[in-house]
Design a binder for these strands. Structure first.
Lengths: 359, 359
DNA sequence: TTGAAAGCGATACCAG
DNA sequence: CTGGTATCGCTTTCAA
């Protein structure tokens, strides 16, 4: 059995079946080689007369010829596809980065092979295999402690522990933490609590150390009872809600919370409200990321913005750059830092002018 | 030049370079044909002695052999990949459906080729071409008025105007609308306003007609000034906010709003609050979808739940079924309806027991 | 029970 | 300027 996976739609003239280079070759009385050269605008095609080129291009259009990428890739060793590894396709974080990646790669003609791993080790290992079998040209891993991928170009987003030969797009966590801490310190807060990320999240430790350092720089130190770590692996606000519950049980003596991200900040707000504290009057909450929810939610959320979409674009661009460079110059790993931005929100004024104020 | 796209990671023994069937063949002194048969568990392999089979499997593992899917697809005419066409990767709707699709197809060994079109016609046309060139085995289109895709199996999600030979996963809009209307009617509302979806959204008209019909069945008819259509192409709550603004300017005489979806419902709530009306005391708002935001947002949102994730799973399963069926039995288009569910929420009680009540 | 060989469709050398 | 031809890695008859 050997039916083609995809037949070309019937073209003008009612022809049918797959149109291949051979079809055009027979129709035009030219060799497949010449046709291929013209269609790809290869340098060798410059030697072919304009008239012939035109004939070829017109025939291709008339027959609705579509080059078979499978065959092309097999021969050329380039699949023009990129593997994307991502924890899940949830609200906010992943989705925003993914959107940036997709837009950039798609418009450069690359296909995306996406795998969501849900933090499961077995899927991570399987993914390495799948990427290899599909011969992706490069891999982008988002928020993932990635296993060593063979010698193909790899770019990570928010993976703080880069292997050599891996380009890494990261938020400048030091500045981000400083913004959060200075903001709260400037509002007069001295008793500040922290919600740490889950242990599986690749940014948890970096951000926590940055927050500690920033606190120290304004003369503060975190008491153990003012620190709680999220545990549940849910892309909702529940882990933050629970962690805040623990903070309250551990004494609850704080006037502000620095949450790991916006989702947990919202969980924190709900927990505080449910516990009878008002936000932001009794307790101020600061998040990270600035997901769409941050501006929609009431009370609105002050947060340290991470340019997520842009980080996706940067990752994709890094991949494209590497792939377009000659192999020998692909050596060094780079670290690309993106700048955070403090977004201070108040609950009033919506699409009526200045909804938020950036500092 | 002919460097392979992807070199296998050095296997045990420090061998290097791509491991192909040829490599194994030379190592084992067996033909590539036999090895292929065993590795694929093809029926013809039953005639091969157990001992030989074991040798082959062990060698494959030892060499870390990964079959080249490109070559396999080229030869077999099956790419084991599916094209997914989706408006965007935003909060809620698309992301949830996409997640269901991805999980199902990935664990069946299929690769996903995802394209987001942002409702742009040029991208839609380009996508047809790209899917053809990559020889995807099938296409899933989500919330998209899809151009005619060649003769390959196609499944749509929430596309109300199905071509023949296209399987369509849709919400039972009639029941969904009825739930919304009966809920509001049951609460005593008689002056009800409606926010219609944008003209480009594939479900706008179906849902609107369903809402009209349900209203009629409880003896209500919508006055023109109680209807507003969203216009902006934004995956945020802003279009709903604006539409509600228009409703208020058009008279504002209503005690309830049926919004096109949750995002617009939240926009409506904010617009009402900004206009000095309280929710739900002055005006009740009902949404559709039950995106994650619906339960996180305060005031919480009563909504008609669409099993989005499940719809993605169903779409993927429909594709797999079709692909596993013999070509001649692939004939008829099916319409798969999924049941909505009314989710009534009150603002209290969070993760402390019954957060929501399903009817 | 196994192997040889013919492709799948495109690209890239080497001739002429 | 253009064409033949080997090849990418795999599957699948057809022979032995």
């Amino acid at each position: 059995m050997n039916r083609p996976a995809l037949e070309a739609a019937p073209a003008a003239g009612g022809r049918t079946g797959t149109v291949s280079l051979r079809t055009l070759s027979e129709h035009l009385g030219l060799s497949m080689a010449s046709i291929s050269r013209v269609l790809n605008g290869s340098p060798a095609a410059q030697a072919i007369p304009k008239a012939t080129q035109t004939r070829i291009l017109e025939a291709a259009r008339e027959f609705n010829y579509r080059p078979n990428q499978l065959a092309r890739s097999l021969r050329s060793g380039q699949s023009t596809s990129v593997g994307v590894l991502i924890p899940e396709i949830s609200e906010g974080y992943s989705a925003a980065v993914l959107a940036g990646i997709e837009e950039t790669l798609s418009s450069a003609g690359y296909a995306i092979m996406m795998i969501t791993h849900h933090h499961r080790a077995e899927v991570l290992e399987r993914s390495e295999r799948q990427f290899a079998e599909r011969a992706v040209d490069a891999v982008i891993a988002v928020d993932t402690a990635l296993p060593l991928f063979g010698p193909i170009p790899t770019v990570t987003v928010s993976c703080p522990d880069p292997h050599p030969y891996v380009t890494n797009i990261v938020l400048d966590n030091a500045r981000a933490a400083q913004m959060a801490l200075e903001h709260l310190h400037g509002l007069g807060h001295r008793r500040i609590a922290v919600i740490k990320g889950q242990s599986f999240s690749s940014e948890t430790e970096v951000r926590w150390r940055a927050i500690e350092a920033s606190a120290a720089s304004v003369g503060l130190r975190f008491l153990p009872e003012r620190v709680a770590q999220m545990e549940e692996d849910l892309p909702t606000s529940e882990p933050g809600y629970r962690a805040t519950g623990r903070l309250l049980h551990q004494g609850g003596d704080f006037s502000a919370i620095v949450a790991f991200n916006d989702m947990s900040a919202i969980g924190a707000i709900h927990a505080l409200l449910d516990a009878g504290r008002s936000v932001p009057e009794d307790v101020s909450v600061v998040g990270f990321d600035d997901i769409a929810l941050a501006s929609i939610h009431r009370p609105t959320l002050t947060t340290v913005r991470q340019p997520l979409h842009h980080m996706g674009v940067l990752a994709a661009q890094a991949v494209l750059e590497t792939l377009n460079a000659p192999p020998e110059s692909r050596a060094s790993a780079r670290q690309i830092m993106v700048a955070p931005e403090l977004v201070v929100r108040s609950s009033t004024g919506r699409w009526t002018g200045a909804e938020s104020e950036s500092v």
